[in-house]
Amino acid sequence: MKPNRGWTPYLFVLPAFLVFAVAILLPVLATFGLSFTRWDGSGPLKFKGIANYTRALHDSVYISSYWHVLIYVVATIVLEVLLGLLLAGAVSARPGTTFYRVAFFIPVMLPLVVIAVLWSFVLNPDFGLLNAGLDAVGLGGWKRVWLGDPNTALLAISVISGWIFAGFYMAIFYAGFARIPKDIIESARLDGAGEWTIFRRMKVPLVRGITEIAVLLCVTGGIQVFDLVFVLTNGGPYNTTEVPTTYLVKTVFRDQDVGYGSALAVILTVVIALIGLLYSRLRRKTSDVEF
C-alpha cells in the first residue's frame, strides 16, 4: 500500500471525528472541568477546588446508591448471565428449539421504558397481574406492594432486568456453543456422557472467554442502569433503590447543581473505567485461549 497523499485521509476521517469530538470528547473534558466548580447551569461559575468531591464522600444517599447498584449487579449476574448460560445450554442440547430462542430474546428488542411501564402494571398493587395471579392460585398471603416496599423493590427491578436480558446472554452463549467443533461433543456423547456432564465439563469451560466478556458487560452495564429504575421507582421508596445514575440526574436537573453533579459523574466514570481495567488485567492473567 502506498502512502496516501496529503489531505485525502483527513477528509475521510474528519466528518466522523468532528461529530464525535463535539458531542462526546469535548463534553467529557468539560464535565471534568465543571466538577471543580459550583454552577447552577446559567449563572456565573465559581471555582471550588475539590469541594464537590469531599461533599460526595459525605453524601450518604450517594454512597448508599453504590450499595444498591452492587446488589443489583450481583443479582443480575445470576439472573441474566447465569440464567442465560443455563438457557443456552438447554436450547443447544436439543433440536427444534428455535421457538424458545426467539421467545426469550423478544424483550431485548423493546425499549426499556416500555417494558418498565408494562411491568409497573404487572406489579401494580391494586390490579396487577402478579398479585391477581397469587390470589388466583391461593397464595394471597404472598401479595406485596412490590415496588413500594424497600425489601422487595430492588429485587423486583433485578428480576425484571433478568426477564429482559437473560435472553440476550443466552444468544451470546448459544452462538459460542455453536462454534465448538461438533466432533468433540459427538465423541463425548458416544462415550456415554450425559447432556448435563457435557454442558458442565465441556461446553462451559470452552466458552470461558465469552463468559468473562458477558460478566464484564453485565457489570459495567449494570452500574449504569437508569431507565428501569427511573420509571419503576425513581430511587424510591425513600432512596432505597437510588442508584448513581438516578441520583445524578436529580442533582443536575432537579436541583440545578451542575458542578456537584459533574463531580458525581466523574466518580462514576472512574469507577466504571477502573472495573474495566482491573477486569482486563485479571482476564489476561487467567486465560490465554479465547474461544
Binding site: 471525528f17 470528547l25 463534553p27 467529557v28 459523574a265 466523574v266 466514570t269 474495566g276
Partner: peptide, 19 residues
C-alpha cells in the same frame, strides 16, 4: 480516541453536553 468512545459511559459527558 474513537476506541476510548467505546468505553466512555453516557454519564461521563451528558451533563456538559446538555449545557
Amino acid at each position: 480516541l474513537f476506541t476510548l468512545g467505546l468505553l466512555l459511559p453516557i454519564q461521563s459527558y451528558f451533563i456538559a453536553q446538555n449545557s
